[in-house]
Write a protein that binds this DNA or RNA. Sequence first.
DNA 1: CGACTGACAAAGTTTGAAATCTGTCAGCTG
DNA 2: CAGCTGACAGATTTCAAACTTTGTCAGTCG
Lengths: 197, 197
Amino acid sequence: MTPVAVVLTEERILDAAEDVLRRFGPAKATVVDVAKALGVSHGSVYRHFPTKVALRDAVARRWLDRLAEPLDPARDTDGPAAERLLRWLERLAAIKQGLALNDPELFATFGQLTAEAREVVAAHVDHLAAALTEIIADGVSSGEFAVPDPVPAGRAVLHATARFHHPLHAAEWADPAIGSELREVWRLLVWGLAARP
Amino acid sequence: MTPVAVVLTEERILDAAEDVLRRFGPAKATVVDVAKALGVSHGSVYRHFPTKVALRDAVARRWLDRLAEPLDPARDTDGPAAERLLRWLERLAAIKQGLALNDPELFATFGQLTAEAREVVAAHVDHLAAALTEIIADGVSSGEFAVPDPVPAGRAVLHATARFHHPLHAAEWADPAIGSELREVWRLLVWGLAARP
DNA sequence: CGACTGACAAAGTTTGAAATCTGTCAGCTG
DNA sequence: CAGCTGACAGATTTCAAACTTTGTCAGTCG
């Protein structure tokens, strides 16, 4: 039986790593800092994560998973698909833009981290596109939308709204017109989804 | 009458500055280097441009103007507006993506420069949006499109295609699917432009 | 007299020696 | 004997001193 209060789990390491990244920023946070926060030698951290990059990737994955949690389409199934789509896009934009506005340091940290964790980000993007595909497929079932295949349509909607949620565009979110610009794009997209060519 | 071969014009300074930026990169190019290339003291350069930032902005403006030249909508007025729109978007993407692919160093220089020249970039973006507005307005005249106001529609189309032409997304252009992704987005957009709500 | 120079202060950048960090592993310890 | 430590080599980062750059301006030159 292992002494419960002292056992070194991946989870406890991730908590500490997240904390250290928050406090020192991605440029200065070291594995030694993480070990110090846990009261162990840095060698112990390497028993659980093979490299510093793997540790950072794991932190990024957890962050992105937590961000994407409120975006499960099953959480909001009321009303026309066009409006569910708008609410979903606005929720995504609000999550990212809120983070960028309320805590720019943390957002920068998070941006740095994800910029390097390409695989992890690809999984996140796939996840978001799948959520859009689900909403669009519901719209097709109800006769609201008329796309031949909801999968590329979901990806296209995500790509077309990149400006409103992709962290690269954070500097543009200061413009107060950003909200109405998202609605303009949404309007074109839902007309496009509904049209029968 | 001034001695023609030796006169120091803004234009000659811009030529030299562009050359120096190309050769040394934006981080290392100095005003002293520009002056040296012209065989004058750096003080003379400051008689024509008040600061280094103003000089760099002027170089960026000239670059962007040159880039945008082949995108005048009056140069391609054949066929349905939907297809003119696709050709225009593909031309814009090809210009930016071609530069990024053929001469990544120069593209990075150009990206750095424009990232700092916010005003200059805003003018360039307005110019591009106006070109799209013109194509959409033509489509409305011909009965192909049905948007109430082509001005926000032009901006929305530019925003919706940011992923395919905005330099921030350059890293994503390596994916060979990028071309078909642009077509997917275009398809939704032109159906949206044509739809009568 | 107007265009240019070059010396200058303040700000910013380079440089290389010292300090720190990453990733490994032989050995300690409960 | 599983889990941890701490010393180590090589890579990377820090820091302060030396050097370079920016922007100004009194003075030179034609």
